[in-house]
Every structure is written in structure tokens, then in C-alpha cells.
């Protein structure tokens, strides 16, 4: 079986390999509306101890509402939400929870060191742990700076570091690396992998699908307030009957799009416009036609769909289908 491109680590094939039976967070038949807008529509999901769950969905799909229920900042209209078996709106349930919200907003007048100490005071965090986090997130040189003077990326790193201050068993990150440069992002991923490898449970949303592929062992695709797919990255991409055909060709885009099964034609890289990716529903038919039409091509490769293509295919098709 072909792996998706840019795999940093091999994805595990089945959820049961990595997951203990303990349910850390549970959402049962939950609905939540804001006025006439239905944000969550009878949604159910569970997070198991030790797994890393990626939440995917287009804007307005209900991801942030789901996170606000799990972190106790909002209440469900109907249905039950629990973390560690308790109500997330009760402070005791949140003792083992760490959160990074989507929006970055720090108290501008406080220094970085003071913000660490402030959050640490809620958990009895040791100074060693705070120092380790400051170093891991490349903030050690900024401890005496006021948060208002930090760059956007520095503030974001601090927001994610704060999620780990309480030595949590469940960490929920809403778009953690938005606005980060590649180096900061890689550093942050490395620290989150360490958290995960030490047995921590992770729930992460991102518009950046490589992030989900890099960190998540399981993916939940949400759209219109419902779960439309649930499985490992591999299961999600296999569920979508899309294949990627990479080839080098000078044929015009229109001609390639006319090939049977083809749904899109995109350049593989910006530097080389003749190196293209065809997304197709029937790779066999596409390749046969490619040969039969006498189109000039070289370097042909066929791959399974990337998570991004699978995600687009799932969320642009209007019929919601639950994954196996």
C-alpha cells in the first residue's frame, strides 16, 4: 500500500494499537446552537487516553464550538460532555487539562516570567518545569519581556507552552501553529511529540493538514456540526477513492483535465510548471487514456490521496458518510 507524501513518521494502521481503553473525554449526542445557527448537531465522539486526535473541518464546521464544550467555556444545549468522567465546567475536572485557544491574547503588561508563574499558581507547578518549558519553546531569553512587546510568533509559542504548564493528561490545542515560521513550528511539534510519547493525550485542530499528519494518530472530520469521518490518517485517505498521478508533461491543463476520472490538475511545485499532479477517481482509466491519447509524459508515479485531498473530497461532497 502506498503511503501519503511527506510522511515524517509512519502512521499506525489501527487505532486499537495505540489506544488504551480509558476514555479521557466523551461527547454524547451533543447539540449546540447560537441563535438560528446550528454549530453542533447531535454529535458524539470520544478521546481515549494516549491517543492524538486531529480535528479537521472547514471554517464554521463546529470545531471551535466542540473545543469550547470540552474545555468548559460553554455548555451544550442537549447531550453530555465529560472530561476525566466529570463536567468540564466544574473546575476540578479541568485540573488535568491544558488548553491553547485559537486566539492569542496575553495580558500585555505582564512579563513572560510572570505569566508562566501566574498559570503555574493554578497547578502548583515547580520552577524547574516552568524553566524546561521556557527552554523547549525558545522563550528563555524573553522571560523579562512584557507580553505586549513579543512578536506574534513568540506570543503563540507562549500560548502553547502555557497548555503544558499544569503537567496535563489531556492537552487541547486550537490551531496551535498559526502564524509560526517553519523553525518555530518544527520545534513546537517536537515538544508536542515528546508530550505524546510520554503518554499524554492530545486533541488538536488545524487548517494545516501536514500538522495533523505529523501529530495525530486519529482524525475526526467534522462538517455542519456532525462527524463525517473518523479513523487513522490512512483510513481517511483510503476512504476517499482518489489517487494522485505525478508526471512531467508539457500538455496543456485543459487536455489533462479532459482525461477520464480526473478532477483536478495542480503543479507539484512552483518552480517547475511541467511537473503536475492529477487527482483522479480512477487512476487506471486515466493512465490508459494518457497513453492512448499519445500525450508526452515522463516520471509517472501513482500515489494514494493526501490527507488534504481526502479532506477536500469529504467536505465538498454534500452527502455525509460515516467512516467504517
Amino acid at each position: 500500500m502506498l503511503h501519503t507524501q511527506n510522511q515524517v513518521r509512519p502512521t499506525t494502521d489501527t487505532i486499537t494499537d495505540t489506544v488504551a481503553d480509558t476514555v479521557v473525554a466523551s461527547v454524547e449526542s451533543v447539540s449546540k446552537s447560537f441563535g438560528d445557527t446550528v454549530a453542533l448537531d447531535d454529535l458524539s465522539m470520544q478521546v481515549h487516553a494516549g491517543e492524538s486526535l486531529g480535528l479537521l473541518g472547514p471554517n464554521g464546521a463546529g470545531k471551535s464550538t466542540l473545543i469550547s464544550l470540552l474545555t468548559g467555556t460553554r455548555r451544550a444545549d442537549t447531550g453530555t460532555v465529560t472530561i476525566f468522567g466529570g463536567d468540564p465546567t466544574s473546575p476540578d475536572s479541568r485540573r488535568r487539562l491544558g488548553v491553547t485557544p485559537q486566539a492569542t491574547a496575553l495580558p500585555v503588561t505582564l512579563r513572560v516570567r510572570e505569566v508562566f508563574a501566574f498559570v503555574g499558581a493554578h497547578f502548583g507547578t515547580t520552577q524547574e518545569h516552568l524553566d524546561e518549558l521556557a527552554a523547549s519553546f525558545d522563550l528563555a531569553d524573553l522571560l523579562e519581556k512584557q507580553c505586549g512587546s513579543l512578536s506574534g510568533g513568540q506570543q503563540r509559542r507562549l500560548m502553547v507552552a502555557l497548555a503544558l504548564v499544569g503537567d496535563p493528561e489531556l492537552v487541547i490545542l486550537d490551531e496551535p501553529t498559526t502564524g509560526l515560521d517553519v523553525e518555530s513550528r518544527d520545534r513546537l511539534w517536537a515538544r508536542l511529540r515528546r508530550y505524546r510519547d510520554e503518554g499524554g493525550t492530545l486533541v488538536i485542530t488545524s487548517h494545516y493538514l501536514a500538522e495533523i499528519e505529523a501529530l495525530a494518530s486519529r482524525v475526526l472530520v467534522v462538517d455542519h456540526g456532525r462527524v463525517i469521518a473518523d479513523g487513522t490518517v490512512r483510513q481517511i485517505t483510503e476512504q476517499v477513492q482518489l489517487r494522485r498521478i505525478l508526471l512531467r508533461t508539457t500538455a496543456p491543463e485543459q487536455q489533462l483535465l479532459a482525461l477520464p476520472g480526473t478532477v483536478s490538475v495542480t503543479p507539484e511545485s512552483e518552480s517547475d510548471p511541467h511537473h503536475v499532479v492529477l487527482a483522479t477517481r480512477d487512476a487506471d482509466a486515466t493512465v490508459r487514456a494518457l497513453v492512448a491519447d499519445g500525450i508526452d509524459f515522463s516520471d509517472l508515479q501513482v500515489h494514494g490521496a493526501s490527507l488534504e485531498e481526502a479532506f477536500l473530497a469529504l467536505t465538498t461532497h454534500q452527502s455525509p458518510a460515516h467512516a467504517a
Binding site: 467555556t73 488548553v99 485557544p101 491574547a105
Partner: peptide, 14 residues
């Protein structure tokens, strides 16, 4: 209306 307050509400305090 400040997201920092939303963050504070996720801490284990009432």
C-alpha cells in the same frame, strides 16, 4: 470579549 479571559476560564478555578 478578550480571548485571554476565555483562556482563564479553562484553568481549574471557579
Amino acid at each position: 470579549a478578550n480571548p485571554w479571559t476565555t483562556y482563564l476560564r479553562t484553568l481549574p478555578i471557579g
